[in-house]
Design a protein around this nucleic acid. Structure first.
Length: 514
RNA sequence: GGCGCUAUCGUCUAGGGGACUAGGACGGGGCCCUCUCAAGGCCCAAACACGGGUUCGAAUCCCGUUAGCGCUACCA
């Protein structure tokens, strides 16, 4: 393949990375560009992995996979007060659970302090930034004064007007200082991959601090410095960063680097239309893992929240998702997180997934609720109940009841049935039990059970439903389950008969209305 | 306050000037299947925020209004 040579050549080229006039054919050039796409996910470990962050990660991952590019993970741990290793681990676990694997990293922003500082000092040396000796208190006082007048505060550049001698004097006196970026009054615009053109005026922005008095970088500098160093070509992030973008572009310009492509994805809202927060209940991906959501279902739900492939697709397997994904399909509008639809989707995945493949999560859930299953094969039980379950938790409860019928709790539908049938409930139950007991244990199969039950009902002139529903309620506590013959087969002969007799007794002598 | 972003059924969305009596999905209602439920199939209710333009023609383009959200730190 002749494609190898230009790629190698490009790789050794110094920035700017995007070749112009290199004499390469358009096709080769596009091919090379595609393979040079470098996207990143850059969470700060100051909390759990939020579903919003997870979706941003998912979009980056899909974009990288779709284009054959590279996904870089960078942990932005420069806020030492709030960042913890535990949070970093939770983020890593969350991404792994969702099946989002990164090609590079995790890198830790905290390790690049020296570069951040060097970049700030270079800007200072080039006159693109200046030392600022204003203290927090002074700044706050200025801000308070201006806000009374109803105008927005903007730093008045008083330190920019200091003479070199004054600066030296203060430095000599050991007065702490920050480095502040000198923002030009010019238009700063970019073609956002999801919003189209967005434009700001430099005069509406503040001269912002880029380096603290302790020489650590402020977010905007750190991000730009790292994104340049890591050769990031596409910055896909939450749209709460839109107003940071002009500052970052100004930094790219000052540092002499071409800016990457920016794409700002919308926020995720709670059911009340407000920004998703703890009040809305589960917001961390770990919460959904605990609730028994399958990673594939979570991914499918999340990708459809703010992105659509066009057309009527709902269930998207991973390869389809990657094939169809595009930045153009991303919605501009914030989306409400609808847990009901998530559960529906999880139900779809649960129904389609072979029992063997969900044994792990089911066993973990059984262990959590203290249910021992010994050496019993869970596969047939899971197969019997998975079509009717929306979460692993719910599914595991159903498995537990089939393992040990006395666990069954009577639900309102079960109660209603008992009340409506009156004495017939126990009578029919006993009748069915007798018929089943007469069955050779070897014939305790779904098919023979149905035959036997049908024959018994016919013999006593009962409608099939009247014969079967009491069995269902006895074994599960509810009127909802797989077909009764399958239920009996899955529960097993001894357990079924014992439970049927117990329940029949319970509702004869006693007060059936309870 | 300033700056910016956004606006189609309750929710997620399709739609990129005529193909729109605005399509799909979740949820809701009804029917079918069936021993029950789920799944599946069929049907029903349900939306272009408002006001101006542009145009022969606007959900689609432009401008306002309104509402929501974001940012406005020596946080990220």
């Amino acid at each position: 393949m002749g494609g190898k040579r230009p790629v190698a050549k490009l790789a050794t080229m110094p920035p700017p990375r995007f070749p112009r006039g290199t004499g390469l054919s358009l096709g080769t050039c596009l091919l090379s560009l595609a393979s040079m796409i470098r996207a990143r996910f850059a969470p700060s470990p100051t909390g759990y992995l939020h579903v919003g962050g997870a979706r941003t990660a998912l979009f980056n991952w899909l974009y990288a996979r779709h284009t054959g590019g590279t996904l870089i993970l960078r942990i932005e741990d420069t806020d030492r007060e709030r960042s913890t290793e535990a949070h970093t681990q939770v983020i890593l676990d969350g991404l792994a659970w969702l099946g989002i694997e990164c090609d590079e990293g995790p890198y830790f922003q905290g390790e690049y302090g020296a570069r951040h500082q060097a970049d700030a000092e270079r800007l200072l040396a080039e006159g693109k930034a200046y030392r600022c000796f204003c203290t927090r208190e002074e700044l706050e006082a200025q801000r308070a004064r201006v806000e009374v007048t109803g105008l927005g505060f903007r730093y008045d550049r008083r330190c920019f007007r200091l003479t070199p001698a004054e600066v030296e004097e203060r430095r000599g006196a050991g007065i702490p200082s920050t480095i502040r970026f000198l923002l030009q009054d010019e238009e700063i615009a970019w073609d956002d991959a999801v919003h189209g053109r967005i434009s700001f005026q430099g005069r509406d922005l503040d001269d912002f601090v880029i380096l603290r008095s302790d020489s650590t970088a402020i977010y905007n500098l750190a991000v730009v410095s790292d994104d340049i160093a890591m050769r990031i070509s596409h910055v896909i992030r939450g749209d709460d960063h839109i107003s940071n973008t002009p500052k970052q572009i100004a930094l790219y310009r000052a540092l002499g680097h071409p800016q990457p492509v920016f794409g700002h994805v919308p926020m995720i809202l709670g059911a009340d239309g407000k920004k998703l927060s703890k009040r809305h209940g589960a917001t961390a991906v770990g919460d959904y893992q605990d609730q028994g959501i399958l990673p594939a279902a979570m991914r499918n739900f999340l990708v459809l929240l703010g992105w659509a492939p066009g057309g009527d697709r709902e269930i998207l397997p991973e390869d389809e998702m990657i094939r169809l994904f595009s930045l153009e399909g991303i919605q501009k509008k914030a989306a409400v997180f609808d847990t009901t639809k998530l559960e529906w989707m999880n139900g779809q995945y649960l129904s389609a997934l072979p029992a063997e493949e969900m044994l792990g999560p089911v066993q973990r859930q059984l262990a959590r609720s203290g249910v021992a299953h010994g050496d019993r094969d869970l596969v047939p039980i899971v197969n019997a109940v998975k079509a009717r379950s929306r979460t692993i938790i719910h599914l595991a409860e159903q498995v537990a009841v089939r393992l040990d019928p006395p666990r069954a709790a009577l639900d309102p539908k079960g109660e209603t049935l008992i009340r409506k049938m009156g004495p017939a409930f126990s009578a029919n139950l006993e009748l069915a039990a007798r018929a089943l007991e007469a069955l050779d244990p070897k014939d305790w199969t779904s098919e023979r059970l149905l035959e036997t039950l049908k024959a018994a009902a016919a013999e006593h002139g009962l409608k099939l439903g009247d014969a079967l529903q009491p069995i269902r309620v006895a074994l599960t506590g509810s009127t909802v389950s797989e077909p009764v013959n399958e239920l009996l087969a899955v529960v097993g002969r001894e357990r079924s008969l014992r439970r049927m007799q117990e329940v029949a007794h319970q509702w004869t002598g006693g007060d059936a209305a309870a």
